[in-house]
Amino acid sequence: MENPENTTQNTVSTVSQDTKNLALLLWLGTIFFGFIPSLVLYLVKKDDAYLLDQSREALNWSITVVLGMLAGFLLAIILIGILVIWVVAICNLVFCIMGVIATSSGKPFRVPFALRLIK
């Protein structure tokens, strides 16, 4: 009899420490510089699958934040936009910190409310 645990293979890929550090800096840079760090790493680091995935996720989140801020500025005419701007800014800070925490241990991070425009 074969043990069912032996027939399944765990395909957990190990992520190098350099890749974890770059992904951590990517999410940290997204807080301060918006979409620029994610766009640079997305265009430069095509050979690393984990870093490409995280830069794509951070870029999608940055685009979502820009669209949310734009909507907030447009709605500022009727005063509800100020609330929208605050909510988007707080969500940006919280989700980027969650990204920093997840990527520091090498786990893939997905923002729940991001528009997936870049696949």
Rank of each mutant, 00 (worst) to 15 (best):
S55W: 14
S16K: 09
V100G: 07
V65N: 11
K46H: 08
I85T: 05
A23T: 02
M69L: 04
D47H: 15
W86R: 01
P37N: 14
F95G: 00
T30S: 14
L24K: 15
V40A: 13
I97C: 07
I90E: 00
D53S: 15
G81I: 09
S62L: 10
N92R: 08
F73K: 02
L75Q: 03
W27Q: 00
F95Y: 05
A49F: 06
F95T: 01
Y42P: 03
L25T: 11
F32A: 09
V84C: 02
L67Y: 06
I36E: 15
V44R: 13
G29E: 01
A76I: 11
V15H: 02
A76S: 09
C96L: 05
Y50C: 01
Y50R: 03
I85V: 13
I101Q: 08
A49Q: 14
L52Y: 11
S62D: 15
A23V: 00
A49N: 07
I85K: 02
L67N: 10
F95H: 07
G72N: 00
L83K: 05
S62P: 11
W61I: 01
L52C: 07
F33D: 09
I82G: 12
L75M: 05
L75G: 08
W86E: 07
A89D: 10
I31V: 14
L51N: 12
A89I: 10
N21Y: 11
W86F: 10
L83S: 14
V87Y: 08
F95K: 01
I82T: 09
D18S: 15
A89F: 06
V87E: 00
F73E: 09
V87W: 06
V100L: 08
I80S: 10
G81V: 11
L74D: 04
L59M: 14
G34F: 01
D47A: 11
I36S: 15
W27Y: 02
R56L: 09
I31M: 04
L93G: 05
I80M: 03
A23M: 00
L22S: 09
N92V: 04
F35Y: 13
F35G: 11
L43R: 12
V65K: 12
C91D: 15
V94D: 10
L41C: 04
A58F: 12
L74A: 08
Q17W: 00
W86T: 05
W27C: 01
E57T: 08
F32P: 01
I77C: 07
